[in-house]
Amino acid sequence: MTAPDPDGALAEQLLRLTRRVHRIQKRHLEHRALGITPAQSRLLRTLAHYGSPPRMADLAERLEVVPRAVTTLVDGLEAAGKVRRAPDPDNRRVVRIELTDDGRTALGELRAARRCAAEEILAPLTERQRAALGGLLDTLVDGPLPGAEQDAARS
């Protein structure tokens, strides 16, 4: 007989919650009829965090994907008028990616969809429970990566 695996159960709960969040967010996005995939949504959100237009390689690194994946996402978003490619003023071989006005509008819609999804997911929780969950999630998100101490010791 195998012993219960509490960490495995927690991992399963986190995966189920993540899937539920994505499903609910997708429903809210479809309701808004933006025609943006979750991957494109992530690229737009990432793009919005840069002070100046990033290079495609910067986006690939930040998104932790291969550059070809970013090219495909940018192609789709450019065709939809959400982003544009712009030459780098200092190096004409470099292409930078900029949000368009339509892209900024879409970001606002994406944020609204995420807020609605979060409200729906968090509805059963009290304010105190939400604060506790927020603290726990901060610890998980901002904490050291498992094995980071071992990696640092080896360096």
Rank of each mutant, 00 (worst) to 15 (best):
P67N: 03
P53T: 13
C116G: 12
P124Q: 02
A123V: 09
V94P: 10
Q25F: 11
L47G: 00
R104L: 07
D88L: 13
V83T: 04
P144H: 12
A86D: 07
A69R: 14
T100G: 01
R93E: 14
P146D: 02
L43R: 05
I36S: 01
A117W: 02
L125V: 00
E98R: 09
R115V: 06
L145Y: 07
K26Y: 11
V70M: 08
L59A: 08
R128Y: 06
A123E: 15
T46G: 10
R104G: 02
E119L: 14
A118H: 07
T105W: 14
G103Q: 04
R55W: 15
R27N: 07
I97P: 02
R111V: 03
M56E: 14
P54E: 04
T72H: 10
G51V: 10
G35L: 04
V65F: 11
G103A: 03
T126W: 01
T46R: 06
V66Y: 08
M56S: 14
E119Y: 15
A69T: 15
H28V: 03
R68S: 06
R115H: 07
L107D: 10
A113M: 07
G35P: 06
P144R: 12
S52D: 15
A69Q: 14
V65H: 11
E127R: 05
L140V: 02
L47A: 00
G103C: 03
T37H: 09
V83M: 00
D142A: 15
P67I: 03
L29I: 04
K26R: 13
M56W: 11
P38W: 13
V66S: 08
L107N: 10
R68K: 09
V83A: 00
A48R: 14
G143W: 12
C116H: 13
R62K: 15
T139K: 08
C116N: 14
L133T: 01
L145K: 06
P89N: 10
L47R: 00
S41A: 08
V74K: 06
A132G: 01
L44K: 01
L77V: 05
I36Y: 02
A60Q: 05
G81S: 01
V141Q: 10
L47E: 00
P67M: 07
K82G: 07
V70P: 05
L133F: 02
A48T: 05
A33W: 04
L47Y: 00
P54I: 04
A79C: 04
V74R: 02
G76F: 01
A39V: 13
V66E: 13
L59W: 04
P144L: 15
L99C: 06
L73S: 03
E78T: 03
A131F: 07
A80W: 07
Q25T: 14
G35K: 04
G147M: 04
R84T: 10
G143L: 09
L145A: 09
T100A: 01
L77S: 04
R96L: 12
R92W: 14
A112E: 15
D142I: 15
E64D: 13
A39G: 12
L59N: 08
V141E: 10
L59G: 06
V141S: 10
L63I: 13
R32C: 01
L133S: 00
A86Q: 11
R128F: 06
G108W: 03
